[in-house]
Design a binder for these strands. Structure first.
Lengths: 191, 191
DNA sequence: TTCGCTCCTTACCAATGGGTAAGTTTACCG
DNA sequence: CGGTAAACTTACCCATTGGTAAGGAGCGAA
């Protein structure tokens, strides 16, 4: 049963991807270290050797996905001018990241099942707030009332989440098609 | 430590409310029967006596919230004419239900952490699909392409979810204020 | 060949999970 | 008063959980 020996860096990367998958599938509470390990073709102590604890592993997945996602969004939004363009660019960044990685991975940032007041909960909140800031910059230009802008930002993010979830179920649709669809859907809203 | 004796019907209602709360807070996997029982001021076997199993309890919470929510939405949407009115009415129904019950309870329908392919997962999917049907009826009138309508419906539902989550954090805002805010936010979108 | 480092496993621990058997208390009713 | 049913608890079962200790196996270097 001895698995093939794999260099640490490579194994860590594999663990990160698989753990992200499992956390997205089952949520923080529902994911078990045993399952993650066995899906890596390895046993539990390896996970603890490389990532210290379940929290540590989750945090690693979170930054792994979070930094990539935010980088993709920021890059995509950099060239956008009007608020409408910014919103569409955010979505496009999201879609392209999801396309080139795994469509379900964003879920690790919007997972709801980690223990309240834990360091993991705080960290996810941090990433959510960074994404919120990006969208809210655009909404603040559209709405005169700051609270309206805030609510609209949250609504937009929720819509994006939901679209991503929907997209996961339709693997034949590309990121570009998805962006075009979004343009049609949001059409009347844009100025 | 013996808790006050309470008639079965009353105790069941209390258990349902508290279990719904806990399931919303922690997700299906993260919620423990022990915690639910102790928050009811009762011990675990009582839960099993009245609800058979964790799945049974969750299903009871689900229909408890689901039927109420859908009834509220359908009642509110009954008088709506145009698609825009239907969307706003759906949201108003949602808000009023949340207002008179508990703002976080809808979460039991949109929880993500139950075991895949379980009877609970199927049941939640059923309620989601009923809500989807209501919204999609409106979207189908707006978009000529059925897939666009589908995507738009999911986006709207996601936006609603997100707004509810946001609303939970702002207890001083009433359902009516929330509906008015939604009208301002969605304004440009409505025809 | 042997040392030593890295990768990896077996085998365990205490705590907690869902779930149950069996018995105790309380209140109402004849 | 005495009995009986409903409300409730104690005390347990076993599987699984997060987590760890200790040792084995492959491999490059000297």
């Amino acid at each position: 049963m001895a698995s093939a020996r794999v260099a640490r860096a490579e194994r860590e990367a594999q663990m990160l991807e698989i753990a992200t998958e499992v956390f997205c599938e089952r949520g923080y509470a529902g994911a078990s270290m045993n399952e993650i390990a066995s899906r890596c073709g390895v046993t539990k102590p390896m996970l603890y050797l490389y990532f210290e604890s379940k929290e540590g592993l989750y945090l690693a997945c979170l930054t792994f996905v979070g930094e990539g996602l935010i980088a993709a969004i920021e890059k995509s939004v950099a060239g956008a001018g009007t608020p409408s363009e910014q919103v569409l660019a955010t979505a496009a960044g999201l879609f392209s990241y999801a396309e080139q990685r795994d469509r379900a991975w964003w879920g690790v940032i919007y997972s709801e099942t980690m223990p309240v007041d834990s360091v993991v909960a705080e960290a996810t909140a941090g990433y959510r707030s960074r994404i919120f800031t990006i969208i809210n910059r655009a909404m603040a230009e559209v709405f005169s009332d700051a609270t309206d802008a805030e609510a609209a930002s949250h609504a937009l993010i929720g819509a994006g989440e939901s679209l991503l979830r929907w997209w996961v179920q339709r693997p034949d649709e590309t990121a570009d098609e998805m962006a075009a669809r979004l343009l049609r859907i949001l059409g009347p809203f844009l100025q």
